[in-house]
Simulated scan of single mutants.
Amino acid sequence: METQKVWFVTGASKGLGLTLVKDLLREGYKVAATSRDVAALRAEAGYQGSDFLPLQVDLTDNAAVQATVAEIIGKLGGIDVVVNNAGYGQLGTLEELTDEEARKNFDVNVFGSLNVIRHVMPHFRDKKSGAFFNISSIAGYLGTFPGWGIYNATKFAVAGFTEALSAEAASLGVAATVVYPGYFKTNFLLQGSLRTAASPIAAYKEARDLEVLHNDQIIGNQPGDPEKAAAALIRVAAMESRPLHLFLGSDALAMAHSKIEAVQHDLATFEDVSKSTDF
């Protein structure tokens, strides 16, 4: 590489984040990464050199994120690419989940990424370059998954603020991409990455059936390869023109097309109602 780019990856303790960190280090990039356990992250990464900066930080703590960004710039010389990957899944219907459960999911999945963006942007503005990859989910594009409503909402929020960021920062030389992964063979569906409602209600058949489907059929049979997902992100980051929307996995692509077709159907079917509200 002509220049040694610096990547900042949040949520790197496992799954896609960890895979991406390992691949980046192997390809010669500088990498700063956050985890709840720095020692475990360093051990899992298998890298002891100075180009790797593992960090333990509470991403929901605005001041802590500000200090972390300053530390990365000071120790690694800057930041070129940010991957906002930290987050967790929260199962439970809208009635089942408490206000506390819902807000915690938003705190991590939404406000954690906003804290990172807020404190990286001054650096990107100064150097008039930079790229954000904000990890949403296919559930942030297609929301008809019963029992996933709050998680869906957090991922729709990621898509919404990424679209706005891409427009706000375009003239500053900064790109923003919202990433919609489908099902990848990581530990996302396992305990620790996926939380269930503290007080489930048996009457919600569709939500319970989908939980059983995930536990009995989807876990272990996810079609996506995290190594290939990491390679795709590295490839797109090197492009001169990056997409605003990036769907990862043939399943995500199929579900996105399904959503588009459903919206087009409703637009055509109810066009007269839509137009009837004009003066």
Score class of each variant (00 low, 15 high):
Gly87Glu: 04
Asn109Cys: 12
Ser13Met: 04
Asn62Phe: 03
Leu189Glu: 07
Gly89Glu: 11
Leu233His: 12
Ile79Met: 07
Val212Trp: 04
Lys155Arg: 13
Ile135Pro: 10
Pro54Arg: 00
Gln217Ile: 05
Lys259Pro: 06
Glu206Asp: 12
Asp251Pro: 07
Glu95Gly: 04
Asn85Ala: 08
Asp225Glu: 04
Gly74Ile: 10
Thr3Met: 14
Val65Ala: 10
Glu261Trp: 00
Val120Phe: 03
Ile79His: 05
Ala12Glu: 00
Ala176Phe: 01
Lys127Asp: 09
Ala64Met: 01
Pro223Leu: 04
Val236Leu: 00
Lys22His: 06
Asp58Arg: 07
Val236Ala: 01
Trp148Leu: 09
Val38Ser: 15
Asp51Tyr: 06
Ala176Ile: 00
Thr177Glu: 14
Ala43Lys: 14
Asn84Asp: 15
Ile72Leu: 11
His265Pro: 07
Ala232Asp: 01
Val263Met: 07
Ala232Glu: 02
Ala131Gly: 08
Asp99His: 03
Asn85Pro: 08
Lys275Gln: 14
Gly11Thr: 03
Asp51Phe: 08
Ser166Ala: 12
Leu97His: 05
Ile79Leu: 10
Asn85Arg: 04
Lys14Leu: 00
Gln90Met: 12
Ala159Gly: 10
Ser113Met: 13
Tyr151Trp: 10
Gly192Pro: 02
Lys155Pro: 02
Gly15Val: 01
His119Arg: 06
Ile117Arg: 14
Ile201Thr: 10
Gly15Tyr: 01
Val174Ile: 15
Val120Ala: 03
Gln264Pro: 05
His119Asp: 08
Met1Val: 08
His257Lys: 15
Val236Tyr: 05
Glu211Asp: 05
Ala197Arg: 07
Arg235Phe: 11
Ser193Trp: 07
Gly143Phe: 06
Lys128Phe: 02
Ala256Pro: 02
Leu25Gln: 09
Glu163Arg: 06
Asp216Tyr: 01
Gly224Thr: 09
Leu248Ala: 06
Gly78Ala: 11
Gly17Asn: 04
Leu16Cys: 06
Thr177Phe: 04
Val83Glu: 02
Leu97Tyr: 11
Asp58Thr: 13
Ser276Thr: 03
Gly87Asn: 06
Asn134Gly: 13
Asp272Asn: 13
Gln56His: 08
Ala238Met: 07
Val158Cys: 15
Val9Ala: 07
Val158Asn: 12
Gly182Arg: 10
Ala252Glu: 03
Phe188Glu: 06
Tyr204Leu: 10
Gly143Cys: 08
Leu194Cys: 08
Ala238Gly: 15
Lys127Phe: 12
Ile260Trp: 08
Lys30Pro: 07
Asn221Ser: 12
Ala70Val: 06
Asn134Val: 02
Pro54Val: 14
Val38Arg: 11
Gly173Asn: 08
Lys5Arg: 15
Leu94Trp: 07
Ser250Pro: 01
Glu163Lys: 09
Lys259Leu: 04
Ala64Phe: 00
Ala198Gln: 13
Ser50Gln: 11
Ile73Ser: 14
Ala176Lys: 10
Lys75Pro: 06
Phe161Glu: 14
Lys275Trp: 09
Asp272Arg: 13
Arg235Ile: 03
Gly49Lys: 09
Phe156Asp: 09
Lys30Phe: 00
Ala157Gln: 03
Pro122Gly: 14
Tyr151Lys: 05
Ala159Lys: 05
Gln217Leu: 15
